[in-house]
């Protein structure tokens, strides 16, 4: 029997790894991967609790919505990263310090 607490601890670990990546990385793509890890931790929680919702399937359906939202986020974020690279020739967020003139 896999308890709910096991799922919650795995997802907490994933969330913290994502947090570490977001705080420490010098590359916008790796920060994006960190955000994806955090989103996946949230989806894992939704799915784990969704096991106990047989009639309405709330957890699983909102997990699907979260996956779609992650896809939309990634598409927009990558377009922004490409634009930033075109303008600054770098994607280190620490070195992007000008607005458009």
């Amino acid at each position: 029997m896999i308890t709910l607490t096991d799922f919650l601890i795995v997802s907490a670990a994933l969330f913290c790894i994502g947090l570490y990546m977001i705080v420490s990385k010098h590359n916008a793509i790796q920060i994006l991967i960190g955000i994806e890890l955090m989103l996946n931790a949230a989806i894992l929680n939704l799915v784990a609790f969704g096991k106990f919702d047989k009639i309405n399937n709330g957890g699983q359906i909102f997990a699907l919505f979260a996956i779609i939202l992650a896809a939309a986020t990634t598409a927009v974020a990558l377009a922004i990263i490409l634009n930033v690279y075109k303008k600054y020739r770098t994607i280190d967020p620490a070195r992007i310090n000008n607005l458009k003139d």
Binding site: V47, A48, K51
Partner: peptide, 10 residues
């Protein structure tokens, strides 16, 4: 892990 949480479609 999602399969083990019985959410195969997800």
């Amino acid at each position: 892990l999602y399969v083990l949480a019985l959410a195969d479609f997800v």
